[in-house]
């Protein structure tokens, strides 16, 4: 596994992170060693192992279709960085 500088820039863009030159440098090495560590798993024989969909051995946790009260709008908006007229307000999208 070799993580390139380009991979780091791509992942940073997807995560909307602005990285400095030093950070890109540092993360390239760090990500590479993390992935190399995880790659140990590839050495295991998993031919007869079912794929895991979830770590908890539960299924079919369902609720009935009954309306519950929503929260007040003031509460919904109180932590928003910006709002107006009951809307969340966001900066230019594209």
């Amino acid at each position: 596994m070799k993580i390139s500088r380009k991979d780091v820039e791509h992942v940073a863009l997807l995560a909307r992170l602005e990285l400095t030159e030093e950070e890109i440098e540092a993360y390239t090495g760090q990500l590479d060693s993390i992935l190399e560590y995880a790659a140990m798993l590839n050495r295991l024989d998993t031919d007869n192992v079912e794929p895991t969909a979830h770590a908890v051995p539960l299924h079919n946790v369902l609720r009935t279709d009954e309306v519950r009260r929503s929260i007040e709008r003031e509460k919904a908006l109180q932590n928003a960085p910006d709002s107006e007229d009951g809307f969340f307000r966001v900066p230019k999208i594209v």
Binding site: E66, R68, S70, R73, A76, F88
Partner: peptide, 15 residues
């Protein structure tokens, strides 16, 4: 459990 009703005041069917 928020309602799916159409046309409510903005951000009133949220949790």
């Amino acid at each position: 459990g928020c309602t799916t009703e159409f046309g409510g005041e903005q951000n009133t069917h949220v949790c």
